[in-house]
Design a protein around this nucleic acid. Structure first.
Lengths: 193, 193, 193, 193
DNA sequence: CATGAATGAGTATTCATTCAT
DNA sequence: AATGAATGAATACTCATTCAT
């Protein structure tokens, strides 16, 4: 569609990787979907794997930015956690392709040593876990939570957030509690009355 | 090892699927790993996909049985939930190959309509969610919990259990809270003092 | 069906060779069709090619015998030729499987040097051509025909007979003149008034 | 030979299909014979069967054109029939490869429903039979023949023409009457003095 | 006579990638 | 920037045949 064929290739690849998986997508499929010839893929990228790397980097960049953009000034620290949870529940609906792309392909890619996926997963880990940890520490300091130990709690919350995204992506038909139920669950665990 | 070459094939395949993924494992690799010739794969199985199906069915059968075998008589309902969490944390250590096999390959397989993986995932869903739901309902009845609504809580706990398995499988090096921290997190959410 | 499994194998093979061709019929198909295991084929025969040879020999033996059994005493020599034509027109209806078996597979087999088919085709040639030639010579001697030269006429008549069989076998749906038209055509060519 | 590798593939395939049969010709053989790599076969054609289809279509197109090109203005209608017979006797000598290709492979292909061979055989049927039928009708009208019934006669003559081609192709060593004998045979059947 | 298990050699086809232009 | 032609290396799968029992 766009005049930029390089972007067409990235779009077509993302669509195909997301709907069929990396290994089941051939360069010919990509070329056809992008209305381009195969050699052009190699003019713009080093190869199929390179296209995949570019895509997940782009996707992750946007994701990291969105987390960065979450409101910094909130009445309570818990509100920040609630925002994080809400954000992840929304992604699955707003960016289903990107969610599928990462969640379906990365587990396999992680089996390969030194894959680009690994560093991205680690970055996500750092960013999200850092976000949570800051909230917890600030909340503890304020007496809002009595979340102890912070690091363990952070991992548990991070896991929950991740799994939310996964379920909403792959089990679309299954019932899933609305945001409030999830947020309430966490609130109960963090805030003892 | 065993005299039974059919089992050798299943073992070799499981190992390779778990360590490299289904698509990156060739029938020749399987044959070599199993110290067998390629045509024998086709004598015992319909094809590569059939081998995969047999393996995940076997793995799931054992998993379902293990859940069935969890102690039925416990002092508290929460103890049952704690057992479920402990069981999943142990699997990743006792059966790392099987955990990797399923968690790495199934997301991709789920993209294909009508794949055997889908029904297995649904069975797991039913079994584990059923287990949790029973605990919650019994616990609510006894006044042990005030978990409301039951179905939402069950899904959240199920998600947590799943993600525990995933993280322990793929992020072995990352720190992970010991059992007690996870169990405590849930206890705080379920049991208000 | 029969207790004789060797015959079952021959029957099953004939059926499959006739309906799918030699190369498209696998030994496994034969075994299944004959309700027998593959190694038994090799107990009774040297191999797939050997089964084929046995079948075409049997078929040809019966064919040669039938020609031998055509009535020897007829009012006219032409009646003998008419009988030969009628006999071939009937085969396609009475023995469609055997006709298909030979006519579909032999052309290809003839491409291979020294194939059993070759000698059989030559035998058929000799027998039928001999039959025709005798009729023509006797008819010429009696003044019934003025068929000259005999050998050329014999080949032409033989060709016509062969093609009749072929068309009735492969072009079942196409219209085909009844016996009388063919016989009449030959009569006109042989018997000048 | 030619710079056009696509044509090289067709030539090599035709040669091999004609001398060994479709099923006994592997794609590797074709590639080697055409001095080309195997994947190129799949770049230019959909597969082995597609190569075969292209060849028989080409062969048939040329055949149909040659029949179309037979002289339209002849002194007698019989001369037209004689030309048809002569034409077929010449094909076997001028185009032995193409004759073998079709006559050896098509009977088998006809066993498969909906094969390209079927429609080609039917086209040939229509063309040749139409040609003969026109001659007979015109000849009858002029009083040149008393060929009755026309359609039956046409089929018989068509059969004869077909079998001539077959025998000259497969039984090269066998004696075969010269053109004049065949033509004379037909003349006697058609033209009563 | 009969078979379950096993295999050497192949068989059509695919795929990521490159080259010449 | 773009492509038609071409390929090395697989890749899942098949087949006639044999062996041990």
């Amino acid at each position: 569609m766009a005049k930029n064929k390089k972007q067409d290739i990235l779009d077509a690849s993302a669509e195909l990787f997301a709907s069929q998986g990396f290994d089941n997508t051939t360069t010919l499929m990509i070329a056809k979907e992008a209305r381009v010839t195969e050699p052009l893929l190699y003019y713009h990228f080093k190869g199929k794997e390179d296209i995949f790397s570019k895509i997940i980097h782009d996707v992750f960049k946007e994701y990291a930015q969105a987390i960065e953009d979450l409101p910094k000034n909130t009445d309570t620290e818990f509100e920040k956690l609630a925002n994080l949870i809400r954000f992840h529940m929304h992604i699955a609906e707003k960016r289903p392709r990107e969610a599928r792309l990462l969640l379906a392909n990365c587990p396999l890619k992680l089996l390969q040593r030194n894959h680009a996926c690994k560093e991205i997963m680690e970055s996500q880990h750092e960013i999200v876990q850092g976000y949570i940890q800051q909230c917890l520490e600030a909340g503890n300091a304020k007496g809002e939570f009595d979340a102890q130990p912070v690091d363990h709690m952070a991992i548990i919350l991070f896991s929950l957030v991740n799994e939310i995204l996964r379920r909403k992506t792959f089990c679309k038909d299954d019932p899933w509690p609305d945001e409030d139920a999830v947020i309430d669950f966490c609130k109960r665990a963090l805030i003892r009355l």
